[in-house]
């Protein structure tokens, strides 16, 4: 006979161990060729299942709504901590994913609370089986998503004065004002080049020392600098989550002594659902653009 304390504890332990094991098995054993793509059901279905499973252990405890929500948040928090230690996820990624996890675990807990109150075993098993089936189908399906983010600023200088600052620039000393950069996400610091021509190597160095290796593929002086990313750092915040494919700066002479500088980036997202993660990817890419472009503006207007 299990005591209420045992049941409470098991409601935390078993769902966390089970869910982390499923993700680990799926990622490292069943789908190693996917490069660690995190499908939507890992963020939605599994947390809901986690909540349902926890509710099964807690079904006789008559938890108040307040306690059930707190416990669900705590369960989500444990899953996030376990992901950090056992799945190698980065801190910023986990901050981004945490609202989803808390909401879905809570949803699962309240679904479970109602399911187990009625004690309709066939219906309960059918519902859980349906969720598991969605997870399996989603895990083995192809996932592909590409996007491009574009930003522009006006610089009070002619293209020829701006160009050299576009190709390479010295350290950005301005303090970060984007909250994720302040929270520890690496921000762009400096760019170097091996030559001013097509095929030259370019390095974009970030605040934590990580470097994106780039190769210039279009070099139209004072007009267009396009570069492919040939190697991106093995940072847990981005590795397996986003692939930056290409970057571009376009300079448009406005004919009045000013220039419109356009920054474009193309990337592949490897975390799903994109309706959630692409909001973050766009926001981060935009702030990388703006930090670099404002620095170019500052250097060019001096």
């Amino acid at each position: 006979m299990k005591t209420p304390a045992d049941k409470e504890f098991l409601g935390f332990l078993i769902p966390n161990v089970l869910i982390i094991s499923i993700i680990a098995i799926n990622r490292f054993l069943l789908q190693p060729e996917s490069g660690g793509i995190l499908v939507f059901s890992e963020f939605i279905i599994l947390p809901i299942l986690m909540g349902i499973l926890a509710a099964w252990f807690w079904k006789d405890l008559k938890l108040s709504s307040k306690k059930l929500i707190w416990y669900s948040i705590l369960n989500g928090f444990f899953a996030i901590v376990l992901s950090f230690f056992f799945l190698g996820e980065g801190t910023i990624c986990l901050i981004i994913v945490s609202p989803l996890i808390f909401a879905f675990v809570t949803t699962g807990a309240f679904i479970g609370k109602e399911m187990f109150k009625k004690n309709k075993q066939t219906l309960n098993i059918s519902f859980v089986s349906l969720l598991l089936a969605i997870f399996i189908v989603d895990s083995i399906s192809d996932h592909h998503y590409e996007n491009m983010v574009s930003d522009e600023i006006i610089i009070k200088a002619t293209p020829d004065k701006i160009w050299k600052n576009v190709v390479a620039f010295d350290k950005i000393n301005k303090p970060n004002d984007y909250w994720l950069f302040k929270a520890g996400m690496p921000s762009p610091m400096q760019t170097t080049v091996t030559g001013y021509k097509i095929g030259a190597g370019r390095k974009c160095i970030f605040s934590n020392g990580y470097t994106f290796d780039e190769k210039i593929v279009t070099y139209e002086e004072n007009k267009n600098l396009t570069f492919d990313i040939v190697n991106q750092p093995k940072d847990p915040e981005i590795m397996g989550h986003i692939d930056i494919d290409r970057g571009q700066f376009l300079l448009q002479d406005n004919g009045d002594g000013t220039t419109t500088l356009v920054g474009n980036s193309w990337y592949k997202l490897q975390v799903f659902p994109t309706w959630y993660y692409d909001l973050w990817a766009e926001s981060i890419t935009r702030n990388v653009h703006l930090r670099v472009m404002e620095h170019i503006k500052l250097l060019s207007e001096e």
Partner: peptide
């Protein structure tokens, strides 16, 4: 259901007495 869970979490953080 998920949206309602967000409301629950919001109430928990702002006016938890309502849950009682």
């Amino acid at each position: 259901l998920i949206y309602d869970s967000c409301l629950k979490i919001g109430v928990l953080l702002t006016t938890p007495e309502k849950l009682n």
